[in-house]
Write a protein that binds this DNA or RNA. Structure first.
Lengths: 219, 219
DNA sequence: ATAATCCTCCAAATACTTATGGAATATCGT
DNA sequence: ACGATATTCCATAAGTATTTGGAGGATTAT
């Protein structure tokens, strides 16, 4: 085999990794799996795609070495093969919003203007928690909270925030978080809380980054 | 438009970036362009693909916001839109070789065992240069050397090394470099030099990383 | 065993991607 | 204006990806 053929084979392997990331459902699955392991139909339901398609796309990611599985009884749980997979996909999304005007626009249309929600850094939140000056709210679905959350956070899934305002203090700062920088759940919750007269802010990024930095967690 | 539709639109934009990286020629083009700007048929010749296909793939990368162009007379020069594009592709390649056994094997088949070539770090090379204890050889094609190289490096394109051994000292250490971690030119040159009795080592990574770190350069 | 549950595989329809050769277009120097 | 050079566009053919519904396998509880 010639050098030229070997080079093409190598670049074809690199392109396989690109192909794994060339599909919206697959990218969404990685985002959800960055919250913790999930079963196949759980993922299908959560992302709103057909079971057979979800299974097929999970297999694609698995064959690219990005996911691993664990069987528990009748269910199969998928998880990220390594936290670096999520970092890489975050970099992809950041690069897309920086270089593709259409992606930047799609992010703005979906998330709205996040800067007015006064994003709180992870360091700042750690201090606020230490001083007892904040209520942290996890607005992700209950399963994701159960799989792991910021130590001391309250679970109020985003679709229940409006109905559970009574559980939150009007006198203290509230910081909401969700799946990450491109997740709409916490920004929506913060807007709702602000409209209802609460002092609410957004956590920069979400659970995966908090977890990756080794900050205090619970589950 | 519903939240769900907006979310899908956003993830479709992210997937566009993945798609841009889902083709071996496109990844190779990014590697070559990380050495400096190049014209279309220069790239086609250098990568060994048909002109029309090279042009089409360059357009795909450009529409993904990864490349920019500059016209100079009858030629059009493409370049990376930003150095972060190259960083990102390096991360992709590293992730592929770490998670995909086939990719790791393809890299080994193409590059051979690089660790026996005693790779020199950039810091170490800077010191060796300062002490005048090394001859640095750039084995990339002459155009790439002309577009920018490590300060003080000698240009001996990889296909001329065997014929130009007389230009190199037997008494001093020789360090060769090329396009980067997955480029075969410097590893081959070091093996050739060692077989001919020279004291040769490989520079870790290649020109783009040296340049990105702001180390001494010339052109 | 049998049924229930969960997941994977398969076939098929549709849509997209890649690669090619050749025609069309743009720029420059004469 | 013309020819030379460099690039893009186009039609086309072959290949690959996506999505679906339903059949087929595994595992568990009865």
């Amino acid at each position: 085999m010639s050098d030229r053929e070997r080079k093409l084979l190598l670049y074809e392997q690199f392109a396989r990794m690109g192909k794994a990331l060339a599909n919206p459902l697959r990218l969404e699955l990685i985002d959800v799996l960055a919250q913790g392991e999930r079963s196949v139909d759980d993922l299908a339901t959560s992302c709103g795609w057909k079971l057979s398609n979800t299974s097929a796309q999970l297999k694609v990611l698995q064959h690219a070495g990005l996911l691993k599985t664990r069987r528990s009884g009748v269910k199969i749980f998928y998880r990220l093969a390594d936290p670096s997979v999520h970092d890489f996909v975050e970099t992809l999304k950041a690069l897309a919003t920086e270089t593709l005007p259409d992606a930047e626009k799609a992010a703005r249309d979906y998330l709205g203007d996040v800067s007015v929600l006064e994003p709180v850094g992870r360091g700042e939140l750690t201090e606020l928690i230490a001083r007892g000056e904040v209520v942290v709210v996890d607005v992700r679905p209950a399963e994701e909270y159960a799989a792991g959350h910021i130590a001391g956070a309250l679970s109020i899934p985003h679709d229940q925030v409006a109905a559970r305002l009574a559980e939150l203090p009007k006198t203290s700062l509230i910081v909401a978080y969700c799946r990450g920088r491109f997740c709409v759940m916490a920004p929506e919750a913060v807007r709702l809380l602000r409209a209802a007269g609460f002092d609410a802010r957004l956590l920069v990024d979400g659970w995966p980054q908090w977890h990756a930095e080794g900050l205090p967690i619970a589950s």
